[in-house]
Every structure is written in C-alpha cells, then in structure tokens.
C-alpha cells in the first residue's frame, strides 16, 4: 500500500497525502539549506584562519551578524524587507533556503575552523617540507583529515537546519508544519496530525544521522583511519 495514498484507512487517508507533500517541501528546503550552509561554512571557516586581517574580519562580521539573530528574523527580513530595498521579489522557498543557509553556514564555519585547527601542526610542517603549494597543502593534507573531525558536529548543524526549516511555514511555504496547520484548521484530528508530523521529523533526522555516519566512516578510511577503532581507543584512554 502506498503510505502517501488517499486510499489509506480513516484519518490516515485524509491526512497522509498532504503531509507527504509537506514532507517533500521540507526535504527540499533541508537539502537546499545544506548545500548553501556547507559552502558558506567552508568559505567562512577557512577565511577565519586566513593570514590576511581583512579576510578574517569579513568572516568574523558574517559570523557575528548571522549568529546574532535567529533564522526566523532573518527569513522575515529577506522575504518582506529586502524586496523593498532591491525591488526584486524572491520566491518564498528561495528566501527560506537563503536564510537557512546563511544562518546555519555561520554556525558551520565554527565547526570547519575548529576541525582545521585540530589537524596536528606536524602535518602542515611535513607538507611544507614536501614542497607542496599552499593550495595542495590544504586540498590534499589538511582538509581530508579535518573532514573526519568535522562530520559529527556538522551532523548536529544539519539536524538544527532540518528543525529550522519548520520556519518557512511562516512565509507561506507549504512544508510539513504549514500542511499540519492547514489540516488542523480544516478539522482533521489534531492528535493524529501532530503525531504524524513528529514522526516525519524523527524519520528525516534519523536519515541525516545515518548518512553522516556512513560519510564519516568513508572519510576516515580515506585518510587511513578506522572510526570504530578510533572511538574505542578514545573511550579506553579516558
């Protein structure tokens, strides 16, 4: 039986088609936000470690500005206020993804900075001794190792992003929350609707965590580390 079909028995048949549609929008907002947030996090995280003061300052301003207010305030501003300044109206989902990416990218940049700084100094020195260019040092020595440490905290950032996508409902994007509100307003059973919505979010969060675990294992293998053994050693040593 199609879990999103209208032929499901009772209240499920009435609500699941709408909630599945909403969940699909939530997935789109999450994926869009992830792509933007990851790109911004890498750029701002590396910029924060730059030798040039001006570059560091730009990263710092970006970080403080977007961490200083919440996604909802930024989303409202981008959707309602920015068009007044620029004359261009942005599509609601696009405005939502923009706010999510900019906000969570700021948090992610701290993760990237921390992970890059955690790569042992000897690795950098070895790369210099091998006469690698600064780009090669970053691309082939530092980043692959930093990536392994980045993934667990980035998993948290992505879960926060998934949760924050609920705010796009406030600028009339038809996500899970928007659909649940519409269903409640049209008289569907409130308990069923909200239980289903919570289950959808739990499922999506579980999928993100599962993907990130797989990614972590693969990234660790690429730099010749075994995550399971590494974790065991950390536990044993403590």
């Amino acid at each position: 039986m199609n879990p999103c079909g209208g032929d499901l028995p009772g209240v499920l048949g009435d609500t699941m088609p709408f909630l599945c549609g909403g969940a699909w929008i939530t997935v789109q907002a999450t994926l869009g936000g992830m792509v933007l947030a990851t790109a911004l996090a890498l750029a701002a995280g590396l910029a924060a470690l730059s030798r040039r003061r001006a570059v560091r300052a730009v990263a710092r301003v970006y970080l403080e500005f977007f961490r200083g207010t919440s996604v909802i305030v930024q989303m409202f501003w981008i959707f309602f206020a920015l068009p007044v300044l620029t004359g261009y109206r942005v599509a609601p989902l696009f405005a939502g993804i923009l706010a999510l990416g900019l906000n969570l990218g700021a948090y992610g940049s701290e993760v990237v900075r921390g992970a890059v700084q955690a790569v042992p100094q000897a690795q950098r020195e070895a790369a210099v001794a091998l006469n690698l260019t600064p780009y090669q040092r970053m691309r082939y020595v530092i980043l692959p190792q930093a990536l392994v440490g980045m993934i667990p905290p980035l998993n948290n950032t992505y879960i926060e992003l998934l949760k924050a996508t609920s705010l796009v409902s406030a600028i009339s994007v038809g996500d899970l929350i928007f659909e649940s509100k519409a269903l409640i307003n049209t008289g569907s059973d409130r308990v069923t609707v909200m239980v289903l919505v919570m289950l959808f979010y739990l499922l999506l969060a579980a999928v993100i965590t599962l993907c990130m675990r797989t990614l972590e294992r693969r990234a660790a293998r690429m730099v010749g580390r075994d995550v399971a053994a590494f974790r065991l050693r950390l536990k044993g040593g403590h």
Binding site: K163, A164, T165, S166, I177, S180, A205
Partner: peptide, 9 residues
Amino acid sequence: STPLLAQLF
C-alpha cells in the same frame, strides 16, 4: 530532534 515550532503547535 523535532522543531520547537512543532512542539509549540
């Protein structure tokens, strides 16, 4: 793992 907004609802 679920949004504050869903909990508020």
